[in-house]
């Protein structure tokens, strides 16, 4: 547990020192969403209609951006080898890194989301559900992304490979994340969608941690 805290603490400290990295992810998120009114026209009805999907797709892509470096930086300078040599399961190393990734990218995305929802004229009734869905969905993105990030260790052009591996796996989160918001706007209960998002998170927590640790072991040999 203390090793978990040590890794998490170090990653958070690094993220604060190199604050630009987190900021760039949020800036990308905002810019990607801002492009849509230019592309589809500024008609409020149309924008409100596509807002949930647009925000979710932009969030997926923004989360992707920072995933490439999740293990790569530690792999290049030997830190990962050092962590693998500790008498502790590699799974807890993965969990600590994923937690740090979510806190430094997922959480800022959630903070920026209401601003974008206003920009896209999303009705106010949808805000709470949008935030709740992002809160349940973005940790799953970090977890699934960790598997991809572990698989591309040492690969050339890892970023492109990572998106090919990981984006298809993001689809369930996208479907239920956007559907939750649309349901609440249409007067239907959003609860079932949110419950499925929670179930996805609970399934990803052990499965992705285990798979990413396995991929790291393979990559380190």
């Amino acid at each position: 547990m203390n090793r978990f805290a040590a890794i998490l603490g170090r990653d958070l400290r690094l993220a604060v020192r190199q604050g630009v990295d987190s900021l760039m992810v949020v800036a990308f998120f905002v810019l990607a969403v801002v492009l849509f009114p230019f592309g589809v026209g500024p008609e409020p009805g149309v924008l409100a209609r596509i807002a949930p999907g647009v925000i979710w797709v932009a969030a997926l892509l923004a989360a992707m951006l920072s995933l490439e470096r999740l293990f790569q930086a530690d792999h290049e300078d030997g830190s990962l080898e050092l962590m693998a040599l500790e008498p502790v399961a590699l799974e807890s190393v993965v969990l600590a890194k994923v937690a740090a990734h979510w806190l430094t990218t997922g959480l800022p995305l959630i903070v920026a989301a209401p601003l974008l929802a206003i920009l896209l004229n999303l009705p106010v009734e949808g805000f709470a559900v949008l935030l709740l869905a992002l809160l349940l969905g973005t940790p799953t993105l970090s977890l699934i992304g960790a598997v991809g990030a572990a698989l591309i260790l040492g690969a050339r052009r890892g970023g492109v490979l990572l998106s090919l591996l990981v984006l298809p796996l993001f689809i369930p989160v996208l479907i239920f994340g956007a559907a939750a918001v649309e349901a609440s706007l249409g007067g239907f209960p959003a609860r079932p969608h949110l419950l499925i998002l929670a179930a996805l998170l609970l399934a990803a927590l052990p499965l992705c941690t285990w798979a990413a640790a396995g991929a790291l072991r393979q990559g380190l040999e």
Partner: peptide, 22 residues
């Protein structure tokens, strides 16, 4: 090993304290 796993953004003491905590 061959690599010196120092993080450029952390001070020398922070790097060493992290390894020791690990």
């Amino acid at each position: 090993g061959h690599a010196d796993p120092l993080k450029p953004a952390l001070t020398v003491a922070e790097n060493l304290a992290f390894w020791a905590a690990l």
